[in-house]
């Protein structure tokens, strides 16, 4: 396999993208999970799907857009969707979670309409839904690299502030932190990560890449930094092993990666129970 990685550009693209996504998705995911925003990641992935389907529709039907990479439309939709979610959450103050089913169904609605306009399912769309090793292009890799740099910059620069915001939003505001601005920056970054990660793992599974490794580490790690560290390890390992397996067994990488993460999760639950002396 490693000789084929050197040989085939598409494998390089897939693996480099995988390494980046396996790192940034759990890294950001820790903040998403502890802030109880996991479902927002899900809602955004469906909005991204609407964008992708719209992009595929445009590029197949209108010659002007024929070279348009649908990932850009997906990113646009995801970012827009995150802004709408924030507006809705503020509007339904005491029922903030209502924003999620609203956005989710809007996303699916648009997706279905665009898919039927583009004459139904095709391989492209299938790849976006379930992820693909062979479909990651050089451009995709460049976009993922850009977003990864953004995420790492965000975390390195604002680690303290994000920690405080996640742990205790009121206290963050009381200390004079621009909590709203920081939250917005955070949600926008989440939207970008969701939209670029689906190239490899697929839209349906992209939010699991942010949440499952965190779910596995949160009960066994002590402290926030260690939780981040362990989540990244689990995420990275699942992505890399998943990609290798999916290449050899010729199965969709998204599903393989998620199954590995579920295994890690089960293992961690057993470990944490054993530690507490319940097994």
């Amino acid at each position: 396999m490693f000789s084929s990685i050197l040989q085939f550009e598409f494998l390089q693209n897939a693996f480099l993208s995988g390494i980046l996504i396996g790192f940034i998705a759990p890294l950001l995911g820790v903040f998403v999970v502890v802030r109880r925003l996991s479902l927002i990641a899900d809602a955004l992935s469906h909005v991204t799907l609407a964008g992708i389907a719209g992009g595929l529709f445009l590029s197949s039907k209108i010659s002007f857009f024929s070279s348009l990479n649908p990932i850009y439309v997906g990113m646009g939709f995801s970012v827009l969707g995150s802004l709408v979610i924030e507006k809705l959450r503020a509007f339904y103050k005491f029922y903030a979670e209502l924003a999620i089913p609203i956005i989710m169904s809007a996303g699916i609605g648009f997706s279905v309409v665009f898919i039927s306009l583009a004459d139904g399912f095709n391989t492209d769309l299938f790849n976006y839904l379930f992820g693909s090793v062979s479909a990651v292009s050089r451009t995709d890799l460049y976009i993922i690299t850009g977003v990864a740099a953004l995420v790492i910059l965000l975390i390195v620069l604002f680690y303290k502030e994000l920690f405080l915001l996640s742990f205790d939003e009121e206290y963050a505001s009381a200390l004079g932190l621009p909590a709203k601005g920081l939250h917005l920056l955070f949600i926008l970054t989440v939207a970008l990560v969701i939209s670029v990660s689906m190239r490899v793992v697929g839209i349906l599974l992209v939010s699991s890449l942010m949440t499952l490794p965190v779910a596995a580490s949160i009960r066994i790690a002590t402290g926030f930094k260690k939780t981040i560290f362990l989540s990244v390890i689990i995420g990275e390992a699942s992505v890399l092993i998943g990609l290798v397996l999916s290449y050899y067994l010729d199965i969709a990488p998204g599903g393989t990666i998620v199954i590995l993460e579920v295994l890690a999760l089960i293992f961690s639950i057993i470990l944490s129970k054993a530690r507490r002396g319940k097994i």
């Binding site: 502890v34 109880r36 303290k160 502030e161 920690f163 405080l164 996640s166 742990f167 205790d168 206290y171 963050a172 200390l175 004079g176 932190l177 949160i218 790690a221 002590t222 402290g223 926030f224 930094k225 260690k226 939780t227």
Partner: peptide
């Protein structure tokens, strides 16, 4: 607060220094 938040006592207290730093 979210009582299952994975942060140590040290991390929580240190977060009080955020604006000062």
């Amino acid at each position: 607060f979210n009582s299952s938040f994975p942060a140590t006592v040290f991390e929580v207290v240190a977060s009080g220094l955020t604006p000062k730093l």
